[in-house]
Design a protein around this nucleic acid. Structure first.
Length: 352
DNA sequence: AATGCGGGGCC
DNA sequence: GGCCCAGCATT
């Protein structure tokens, strides 16, 4: 055990750590779990409002378990990584049912829940039950790889094993919860990804990266993400005040969110009246009224660039579009949509 | 072991 | 435009 690192971290935490968050010191495992799921791959500042909304709307795991699924997704709308929401609902039902509302209190049982991996299990186990499991998140990987001057890629199989063992050996087993909170705060406030505060860092005299001027080169990641561009054109087709929508079910982005009638292409489309007419013929075979077309909207995701437009259509006759359902505006407002579609809906539509 | 999954903030 | 964020599930 590297006593120095742990001691100095805990000293920094007591003397200088001013980071405050509503769930800090929280002992209700339900709220801890909720905050951890929301914060997976998500900045604290971004997740904060969602956490407050969820706690207010669903103060207990039972309330969450009994809530209509669409209502939970609507509350999650805009936060991204929507499988988290699906797993949140599934786990709430398991805790409410199998565990009779009592959150499981061992690392293994917590880890077995949907949407909970090694990081989240360690966080809940240590924060709620003071169990000695070290968290390893992006902050911890950065702090450790810098402090020990390790260039082993943090996203490699070997690296994960290595940093996990290291983290466990450094854990303050007397106060695992406080230690885990401290190392993540330290990574977020001092040992930041960009422009870390090395000059005021209490660990700088022992930090190998600082001594060798490697700070800006660590941590090392080996994986490069492939990006692709997609062109998604949405047709808002309305009949008698109702509009066609469907839930996205495919293993793709925005699974479980709703969308309008989609025409997707590998290449951009230069919409003309003729193009639109032909596209619409692939859904319906009745006369229509073109209300207008929006400007081009772009949405950059982590791994995809989405480009598209929105085209508004009304039809007079009663029609059916297989796979889509006709809903009123009031009902549609209760459903969760991707940000891309919400942005499209805010655009003005114009005719040629 | 590799890939896919959102959205936002910072440089 | 690239990187990163209190990661996880799937293949």
């Amino acid at each position: 055990m590297n006593f120095d690192f742990t001691r100095k971290l805990m000293e920094w935490n007591s003397a200088e750590n001013n980071r405050s968050m509503p769930w800090k010191g929280e002992k209700d495992p339900y709220k801890i779990w909720l905050s951890e799921i929301i914060l997976q791959q998500t900045r604290v500042e971004q997740g904060l409002a969602y956490y407050n909304k969820f706690v207010e709307t669903f103060p207990t795991v039972k309330k969450l378990a009994k809530a209509p699924e669409e209502k939970v997704f609507k509350l999650w709308e805009g936060l991204g990584y929507y499988s988290r929401c699906k797993n949140l609902i599934a786990t709430a039902k398991i805790i409410d049912g199998d565990y009779k509302g009592r959150f499981p209190s061992t690392y293994e049982h917590i880890l077995a829940l949907k949407g909970i991996g090694p990081y989240t299990a360690a966080a809940i186990a240590s924060f709620a039950f003071n169990l000695p499991h070290a968290v390893v998140d992006g902050n911890v990987l950065r702090v450790l790889s810098r402090y020990f001057g390790m260039s082993t890629p943090v996203d490699s199989t070997h690296g994960k094993k290595l940093y996990n063992q290291l983290a466990d050996s450094l854990l303050d087993k007397e106060s695992p919860g406080i230690y885990n909170q401290a190392i993540m705060d330290f990574g977020a406030v001092v040992c930041k990804p960009q422009n870390p505060l090395c000059s005021i860092c209490p660990q700088k005299s022992d930090c190998r990266a600082f001594q060798h001027a490697w700070v800006n080169d660590l941590p090392v990641k080996e994986k490069v993400l492939k990006k692709k561009t997609r062109y998604m054109y949405y047709f808002v087709i309305s009949v008698d005040g109702k509009t066609f929508v469907k839930k996205r079910e495919a293993k793709d982005i925005w699974q479980n969110l709703y969308e309008f009638v989609l025409h997707e292409h590998d290449e951009p489309i230069d919409w003309t009246k003729k193009n639109i007419k032909e596209a619409i013929k692939s859904f319906i075979d009745t006369p229509f009224q073109l209300q207008g077309i929006s400007t081009i909207v772009k949405q950059q995701l982590t791994h995809q660039l989405i480009i598209g437009q929105l085209i508004k259509i009304t039809v007079q006759t009663s029609i059916d579009i297989p796979g889509y359902e006709l809903l009123t505006e009031k009902d549609i407002k209760k459903l969760a949509f991707p940000k891309f579609i919400n942005t499209l809906m805010q655009q003005e539509v114009t005719l040629f």
